[in-house]
């Protein structure tokens, strides 16, 4: 315990890095994931193809490889981004594929009659998606989307291997310096993650109950 108090600044900075990394990556993943899901159900075949290609590429590539590409691959084509930005993009782009698939399963759970009724009223494809299908899809995907985002928070730990001083990066650093405090270090790191993920899980549960829909 004394060890944690003595090194509080270190843990706090690392926690803030993990938190901001998570929030920014979450934003990227939700925006891009929604766009991809809209593309995957669109009537325009090239858009569908493009989104499917994206999803299959990112979903089937290990996140470490995505990081490697962002941080060491892109500079090869003269496109240098910082370690932190690289981490945000890696986690965000990777998670977008999973957000897309979660949303798509939600879209498929909305009965086709809803979209038909919307189109029969004269709403365009975009409008019927925005006004009728997605609001209903979001409600059914709150639990799986919560899973995806909690996994994402934990996936930010890979940034430790790419010079981002987030929570997990404390493990090798502090254990090397003070092996006797291993338990305290582990507890500090795990608690850091939980401060982010547990409230998220709670929020998901709340939202789930709030938006529950009568069918």
């Amino acid at each position: 315990m004394q060890f944690l108090i003595d090194n509080f600044d270190l843990f706090w900075d690392a926690f803030l890095t993990t938190l901001s990394l998570s929030l920014l990556a979450c934003l990227v993943a939700l925006v891009l994931g929604t766009l991809l899901a809209a593309m995957r159900v669109s009537p325009i075949a090239p858009l569908r193809g493009l989104a499917t290609f994206y999803v299959e590429t990112f979903r089937n590539t290990p996140l470490t490889v995505v990081f490697f590409f962002m941080i060491f691959g892109l500079p090869q084509i003269d496109f240098v981004i910082g370690f932190f930005t690289g981490a945000v993009l890696s986690v965000g782009l990777y998670t977008a594929a999973f957000v897309c698939e979660a949303l798509r399963s939600g879209i498929n759970s909305v009965s086709p009659g809803q979209a038909e009724a919307a189109r029969a009223l004269g709403l365009t494809f975009g409008q019927s998606l925005r006004e009728v299908v997605l609001p209903q899809a979001f409600r059914t995907v709150v639990p799986p989307l919560g899973n995806v985002l909690i996994a994402m928070v934990k996936n930010t730990s890979i940034a430790a291997g790419f010079s981002v001083s987030e929570l997990s990066s404390l493990l090798p650093r502090l254990v090397n310096a003070s092996a006797g405090d291993l338990t305290a270090i582990l507890v500090g790191v795990v608690v850091g993650y939980m401060i982010i993920t547990l409230p998220s899980a709670l929020a998901v549960h709340r939202i789930e109950r709030r938006v529950a829909i009568l069918r």
Binding site: R119, A120, L214
Partner: peptide
């Protein structure tokens, strides 16, 4: 496309399964 949406606006449709917007 847009033209079709415009035309559909002038054609009312009532379905067997109602298809009211549930939300």
């Amino acid at each position: 496309g847009k033209e079709l949406a415009k035309l559909r606006a002038d054609v009312g449709m009532v379905f067997q399964s109602f298809n009211l917007f549930a939300h």
